[in-house]
Design a protein around this nucleic acid. Structure first.
Lengths: 204, 204
DNA sequence: ACCTGAACACCGTTCAAGT
DNA sequence: ACCTGAACACCGTTCAAGT
């Protein structure tokens, strides 16, 4: 063996990322291993390591794919709803819903940790930034009078909180006795937080 | 070797849990392995597995210890501040602060995942319950007129959100440009959410 | 140039064998 | 009864050797 040249570098990378995505979707982050990915694409681990620095880079590519899917959904909702308050509520619910529909992929994004010396690639950071910028836009249109710092503070606070509800929803130890659905919590969070925040702004 | 009997079963278990705690504090959850723990206490892996079902049980004991520390701090704050609103704000800040002071331990609690077939032990679940019950008490005293379901909904919403801010604080990709400290976000969340929630209650 | 497969240093877990 | 240490089936990662 050797010198097969069945696929270009780019093809092998694409196949490996796809295989990683499938593994995450089926078995979760823990189900991913270099050997399994290699076997799935018909090459050996050695080849995998000629195409990726390490296993983290591979997982990061798979997670970036999920983030892009999420971003597309959120942008669609943003476009579909012009009214500022219903818009941000729908965005929060879409975020929550995405986590429920793609549970394994969602967990893979937030559970995966990079080694200390690993520098987050630009193409990954860009997706995180896009997510926060979408929220910031939505919050700004809710209160156009506020200055940039206030908008930033509110959108980060709100989104950390929305994220917290999503996280504890997936661990789902919390809503044991079908008392409160995560959707109810989300509704409670967004409406209460924002109504007080808007009111505070109209006073100034 | 064999038949050393230097320590009782209970002593070995205690030593192993301590060693695990030390490993988590120094190297994080990823730094824990059965072989390392065994070596630290002067026994072999075999002995470890006669005292614990698996590595997860060991980690759960270490995490339960951290949860107890956290609970003690929160209870102290609860006792020290009788006014309902300042009390819950201080509890939220203590929660955030604990996560910052014991970062590795904190991450170990929320990052550790059990195998699907592993049933959460009672003594662990009890600590989680105690945490939520403390928050629920604090929220109830803020609005004694509300019925139980409303209190539960509000305290779960609030605490998921508080938790979300703590989580994203520790990943700390978010507050890159020292614009907003996590304390500022926490303040914004708790005051806005609760002021709207209390106001809603006084209308009914 | 491309790919392999063995090697290294690790995992969690089990269990026959020793005292 | 208590403890060991080798074994099994896995990891991530590297690299000499083959074509």
């Amino acid at each position: 063996m050797a010198r097969r040249n069945d696929h270009t570098r780019e093809e092998i990378q694409g196949m490996a990322i796809d295989a990683t995505r499938t593994l995450i979707a089926k078995e979760g982050l823990e189900g991913v291993s270099a050997r399994k990915v290699a076997q799935k694409i018909g090459y050996t681990v050695g080849t995998l390591y000629q195409n990726f620095e390490n296993i983290h880079e591979l997982i990061l590519h798979a997670n970036a794919f999920s983030l892009t899917q999420l971003l597309v959904e959120l942008e669609k909702v943003y476009q579909a709803e012009p009214r500022a308050l219903p818009r941000i509520i729908r965005i929060a619910n879409t975020y929550l819903d995405f986590g429920q529909r793609h549970e394994k992929q969602w967990i893979a994004i937030f559970r995966h940790t990079l080694p200390r010396d690993f520098i987050m690639p630009d193409w990954y950071q860009a997706r995180i930034d896009a997510l926060f910028s979408l929220i910031e836009r939505a919050v700004r249109e809710l209160a156009p009078g506020r200055d940039k710092k206030q908008i930033q503070l509110a959108s980060r606070t709100l989104w950390s909180s929305v994220h917290g509800i999503c996280i504890l929803n997936i661990g789902n130890k919390l809503y044991s006795d079908n008392i409160a659905t995560p959707q109810t919590l989300m509704q409670s969070l967004v409406t209460h937080y924002l109504s007080a925040w808007i009111q505070e702004g109209s006073k100034a």
